[in-house]
Design a protein around this nucleic acid. Sequence first.
RNA 1: GUCAGUGUAGCUCAGCCGGUUAGAGCACAGCAUUCAUAACGCUGAGGUCGAGAGUUCAAGUCUCUCCACUGACACCA
Length: 515
Amino acid sequence: MNNMKYTITTPLYYVNDKPHLGSSYTTIACDAIARFQRLKGNTVLFLTGVDEHGQKIERTAESKNLQPQLHCDEITEKYKFLWDKLNISYDRFVRTTSKEHTSLVHQFYSNVLKSDDVYMGRQSGWYCVGCEEYKDVEENDKSPICSIHKKALEWRDEENLFFKLSKYQDQIEKLIQVDGFISPKSRKNEIINFVSKGLRDFSISRVNLKWGISVPGNSDHTFYVWFDALLGYVSGSLRDQCSPELTDESLCNWPANIHVIGKDILRFHAVYWPAMLLSAGMQTPLSVFGHGFLTREGQKMGKSLGNVLDPIDLLEYGGIDAMRWYLLRDIEFGEDGDFQLRRYVDIVNSDLSNTIGNLLNRTITMSKKWFNEKIPIDNTSLPESPLKVQSEMKINEYMESFKNNNFKNSANAIIDLANSANLYLNDRAPWKLIKDVTNKNVVAHDIYSVLESCRIIGILLNPFVPNLSSRILYQLKIDPSVIDFEQSLHWGLLNPSNGLEDPKPVMDKIEYKDS
RNA sequence: GUCAGUGUAGCUCAGCCGGUUAGAGCACAGCAUUCAUAACGCUGAGGUCGAGAGUUCAAGUCUCUCCACUGACACCA
């Protein structure tokens, strides 16, 4: 039952602009899942990457006086740089401008053709240049205006290739009903509602777009962004990325266990994408999770408001552990969340510095002071520490919640355990007991059980804040690279002969400053 | 416009099929205090549960109306 393949993807981010907090949020969440799965002993393929084609990018490059490819290279580097800073443990980084990807798109397309799912049609309607999309308009309206841009819409009529989405109505309806396929539930209902109204075919090519993958057999067409970008998940998960081929053998990491995406693109992943895969005779992903968006101090982030929070700035403010912890611990994954600086500082200081950091610090100090610079050996026949029971309970909660991508609850389970350990210390007051030498065994028992709790906390923290987790484990002289849930989460594994590092605060406090 | 969801202490949220003085964590105040990162602990202050009406012996919890916010309503990465 162990050692299963687990494939997880972030969205392939559109390289129109540098990465923002939203994409960092998604990627951090995926990283937590990937690390969690690895600790469970699964073989994880954690895939991220960028979507580089499309008119918007073509234009952005033009406005910067750059070749599109150079512009893409530039932005791609920023993504990689940021993921590095955030300690994102991705295994592969897909670029849709790579040769391999192009080849895969062509193969996939030919399979879809074989299923007779493509036809030439006309896309006509009122088009907004600003939105780059066709708008639904009241039938009688002869001069419609875009509600967003307040500009007149243009009538456009162009030749496009269409994909027969409608053919898959029944299969998609069944698929989206499957329990756990779409999360969270509220979004699932929206998709079901949407699909029940009847699926229409959608266009998969454009004629006046150069910056894209050419359509074989229709040289003046390029693939429309979705038909191109979604396939990045496949090209990135192939066994051999250098010579991509759609064979059972090379598809060993497919289907993805989970696509984590923002709620805005849920429909494409939960409806269009599975249909495309069905058409090509491939397996559909096992689940799709559409998370919420972040606002800042109650307001939408946007360029026009000038309140965009740059992930790099945030990183410099509180550090990587703070940023990861806050996003995973305080925001309900799936719901929209609000970033508040005051709260950010409070939560991080309280949880990581005061509750966890201080617990480790005070306990190591006591241990070293009274037990010859070491971890005490618990050779008493005292009843089991209540912390053992508590930790087992909290490990359970943590696991259950994490399975459902409920990071908040998992994080709370860790904090609960740390709180219990702090309370236990206050209750037992080893600093008083130790004054009487005959109590030494009792104190050993107490200190050991708190240190053991710290070890477990350190391990459980890994998917959330890998750096802090390592710092904690280092102080307990445990090699963080060899931890594993199955092996490491049993009570009593802390080895007294290992010794302890000198206590140093593992988490500095963030100073709140209005900015 | 239609449909769905949300609105509970300063902040983030629990409150199941209606039932005693509405809960937690954080923030704040006081006390205590060193084993510890002005940390841990204890105590406390904080809410007309969005507004109004109704059903009921009894409503945060059910019904209706209204207000505010969010989302979906097909090609927006």
